Computed example of a mutant assay.
Amino acid sequence: MKVSIELTLTPLKDDYEPHIVDFIKLLRASEFTVLENPLSTQIYGDFDKLMPFLNEAIKQAFQAIDIAVLNMKIVKTDRSDYKPDF
């Protein structure tokens, strides 16, 4: 089953940017399609492969940060080729 997942990592500390960059680089280094915008990062792939990868990636990010919030939305379809038609 293909899924599209939107992630927003928000470290609750003054030097937040390096932690976000490290998380995005970890996602980019994966086998999955990764797209970014200024507010979030989207990752696309097969649910059964993507979720174990994200479990480890999120764990790694959280271990490097004292306190953080991660917002995640999951859509049951691959929307990586979405183009607005308006």
Results as ranks from 00 to 15, higher is better:
residue 1 M to C: 06
residue 1 M to T: 12
residue 1 M to A: 12
residue 1 M to L: 07
residue 2 K to H: 11
residue 3 V to R: 03
residue 3 V to E: 05
residue 3 V to P: 04
residue 5 I to N: 03
residue 5 I to E: 04
residue 7 L to V: 02
residue 7 L to I: 11
residue 8 T to M: 11
residue 8 T to A: 12
residue 9 L to H: 02
residue 9 L to F: 08
residue 10 T to L: 14
residue 10 T to Q: 13
residue 11 P to R: 06
residue 14 D to H: 12
residue 14 D to P: 00
residue 15 D to Q: 13
residue 15 D to W: 01
residue 15 D to P: 00
residue 18 P to V: 02
residue 19 H to L: 08
residue 19 H to V: 01
residue 19 H to C: 08
residue 20 I to A: 04
residue 20 I to E: 04
residue 21 V to A: 10
residue 21 V to I: 15
residue 22 D to P: 00
residue 23 F to M: 02
residue 25 K to I: 00
residue 28 R to K: 15
residue 28 R to T: 05
residue 30 S to T: 10
residue 30 S to L: 07
residue 30 S to E: 07
residue 31 E to K: 14
residue 31 E to G: 12
residue 31 E to A: 14
residue 35 L to R: 13
residue 35 L to E: 12
residue 36 E to H: 04
residue 36 E to A: 13
residue 36 E to N: 14
residue 37 N to K: 03
residue 37 N to T: 09
residue 39 L to T: 10
residue 39 L to F: 15
residue 39 L to H: 06
residue 40 S to C: 12
residue 40 S to W: 04
residue 40 S to Q: 13
residue 41 T to A: 03
residue 41 T to P: 05
residue 42 Q to C: 08
residue 42 Q to Y: 10
residue 43 I to E: 07
residue 44 Y to M: 02
residue 44 Y to P: 02
residue 44 Y to L: 03
residue 46 D to Q: 14
residue 46 D to G: 02
residue 48 D to H: 11
residue 48 D to E: 15
residue 49 K to W: 02
residue 50 L to I: 05
residue 50 L to A: 06
residue 51 M to N: 02
residue 52 P to Q: 11
residue 52 P to T: 09
residue 52 P to C: 09
residue 53 F to C: 07
residue 53 F to Y: 14
residue 54 L to K: 03
residue 55 N to M: 08
residue 56 E to R: 10
residue 56 E to C: 02
residue 57 A to I: 07
residue 61 A to K: 05
residue 61 A to I: 09
residue 62 F to Y: 12
residue 62 F to R: 12
residue 63 Q to S: 14
residue 63 Q to K: 13
residue 63 Q to M: 12
residue 64 A to S: 14
residue 65 I to D: 04
residue 66 D to Q: 12
residue 68 A to P: 01
residue 68 A to Y: 03
residue 69 V to F: 11
residue 69 V to M: 13
residue 70 L to D: 01
residue 71 N to G: 10
residue 72 M to D: 01
residue 72 M to E: 08
residue 72 M to I: 15
residue 76 K to V: 09
residue 76 K to N: 13
residue 77 T to K: 15
residue 77 T to Y: 08
residue 77 T to R: 14
residue 77 T to V: 05
residue 78 D to A: 06
residue 78 D to H: 03
residue 78 D to I: 03
residue 79 R to L: 15
residue 79 R to G: 00
residue 79 R to A: 14
residue 80 S to F: 07
residue 80 S to E: 09
residue 80 S to G: 07
residue 82 Y to F: 15
residue 82 Y to M: 09
residue 83 K to N: 06
residue 83 K to D: 06
residue 84 P to T: 13
residue 84 P to D: 08
residue 84 P to H: 11
residue 85 D to I: 11
residue 86 F to E: 11
residue 86 F to Q: 07
residue 86 F to N: 13
